[in-house]
Design a protein around this nucleic acid. Structure first.
Lengths: 330, 330
DNA sequence: TTGAAAGCGTTACCAA
DNA sequence: TTGGTAACGCTTTCAA
């Protein structure tokens, strides 16, 4: 049997109520007894039973985090940001990986919800409607990070529309007129829609008519990048390509290499995300870097502030980081 | 106020005890009432309050998982394995990322332990002694995966000693006589010790005297790989190099590229781990692949079986996967 | 098959 | 400043 507050109370010759007050730093107590109690707690190897505490208190300071198990490597960066902020503000994170099958998803989500949660943060997830229904039926705040959902769920992400303008402008300034966008042709996700719209509008702004064929690739995978090069064949009908995720861009780069296309002299690549992955290639990928850590921090502080109106969309900054995969065309 | 079993009981005109029995599938009840109760639970949007359940029951089926936040990308694979097994056997996973500062680590671990845990699994962590002390003081089973700890904590990992033999044999068969091992010179971790010993013994078995300089590099980082090539300079004093982690090997590969060394013609590389990262390079990395998913599954089933004697070490299989970074020397 | 009641460890309210 | 007590939601034992 584990040590309880009562055991400490007995040994200290005071009541459990007092021990509770001391250990949680709530209410009034003398520093004298407090000292003794804290010492005893340490000596006796006391661990708070959070289940009991949760049960007794109404509110909780636990934030559930849903992470896709098809692990985008920027999820780590978001979690890091969340964790540091949570630590600072005294919140606790409960992380759950969500699987691909619907049945398992629901089970995972339910088991998460069966802890008394204050909020659930969804990382880069386009969650199934049935799962979303379960989440909504529970009395928790919802928040989507690095993704916007179709629904009235507040979100924190990059301004994907503006990001495309930044990239297209950059490529345009380097003389490129024919550009492709790979990995954002999935019709559903809002992020993909925004990227397509931004891409097309930016081209239009520069007086470039847009070729629908040049928006290609549904999945955010390495294979999509590889396949894109094969699909368009030689000679490539564009001089620059935007990869919608670092892993796609690595696929593009390797696909180009495999096809004997030299990067950047014969093909320029700009990648979206800007994780450490971009440093692993030769040449290093030119990237628009999203501020994932910031997204994570904002997630927690927004939850803490109760500043979550539904429909609210928060953007974090993006930075274009020039590297080795864009050349100037004369 | 959330729905409780009492609410359901009232509506169904039965007692809370019965509802509990039905919803947990324990004890006896009529299928007739059961059906009605389950329906009501659904309709009313009932969520079990796991805190209350944990409090009420003695035992728990929750396994805590400590994941290093400096994210080795194989951690995902282990977690996937754990999750599928946990799902199958009815266990719940509570994942916590552990930070770098000691103070935060302890806080994270304590908050994890304050849930009623059955066991704590440490993924590839060389945990600080003070943190370990906290873990040991709690009444939970401990298990280390993909790492062996100095202490009497059972572990599941690859046979790192044998793995080095496999690699050295493979390189020897391909004509290599001068080999280096990068990223395992940290004196402390048992895994590093085993790899060094395996490396040296395997060389000895082939009658090759081992050069201490050829074991180099403490950190399991990309930079270690890059630096290794710079350190040894041109011409490289060995014909083959073993990277102690995929990310190191990518560093080695890029370092070689940067130095104008062609892989594999002028340098052969074998990597340890064999995650998807190995597919991202050109040429693709020849790897000894560890079975991370299996490690995860075993972790859960060992906990379930109570088959954890301290000092017990379980190995999973490794596979050498030939690819493009090893050449034959004549 | 079902119900009543006690108990899990903690917190909060009210009284001392 | 402290203590007694009820309450949180669920499970379990014993009795009906």
């Amino acid at each position: 049997m584990a040590i309880t507050i009562k055991d400490i109370a007995n040994k200290a010759g005071i009541s459990a109520a007092s021990v509770s007050r001391i250990l949680t730093n709530r209410g009034r107590f003398s520093e004298e007894t407090a000292h003794r109690v804290r010492e005893l707690a340490n000596e006796m190897g006391y661990f708070k039973n959070q289940s009991a505490a949760d049960l007794s208190q109404k509110s909780s300071r636990v934030v559930g985090v849903l992470v896709p198990i098809t692990h985008t490597n920027f999820a780590d960066e978001i979690i890091k940001g969340m964790q540091s902020k949570a630590y600072e503000l005294g919140y606790e994170l409960l992380i759950a990986f969500v699987e691909t099958t619907n049945q398992q998803q629901i089970k995972t989500v339910k088991s998460l919800l069966s802890r008394q949660l204050l909020a659930v943060v969804m990382l880069a997830i386009d969650i199934d409607d049935t799962v979303l229904a379960v989440l909504k039926s529970a009395d928790v705040k919802l928040l989507s990070v690095s993704n916007q959902l179709n629904n009235d769920i507040p979100s924190i992400s990059s301004d994907n529309y503006a990001m495309m303008h930044t990239i297209v402008d950059y490529l345009y300034d380097h003389g490129h007129r024919q550009m492709a966008l790979i990995g954002s042709s999935d019709p559903d996700p809002i992020v993909a829609i925004l990227r397509r719209r931004g891409f097309i509008d930016a081209l239009t702004d520069h007086g470039i008519s847009y070729n629908p064929d040049f928006i290609w690739g549904v999945d955010m995978t390495y294979q999509t990048g590889l396949d894109a090069i094969k699909k368009f064949g030689l000679p490539l009908p564009f001089t620059a390509v935007i990869g919608s995720a670092d892993i796609i861009s690595i696929g593009l780069l390797n696909g180009a290499l495999d096809a004997g296309i030299s990067v950047p002299s014969n093909l320029s690549i700009v990648t979206v995300d800007g994780t450490e992955l971009t440093q692993l290639t030769r040449p290093i990928l030119t990237a628009t870097q999203q501020n994932f850590a910031k997204m994570g921090e904002l997630a927690i502080s927004n939850i803490a502030n109760e500043s979550l109106s539904s429909h609210s969309v928060t953007f974090t900054d993006i930075t274009l980081i020039p590297a080795g995969t864009v050349t100037t065309i004369v």
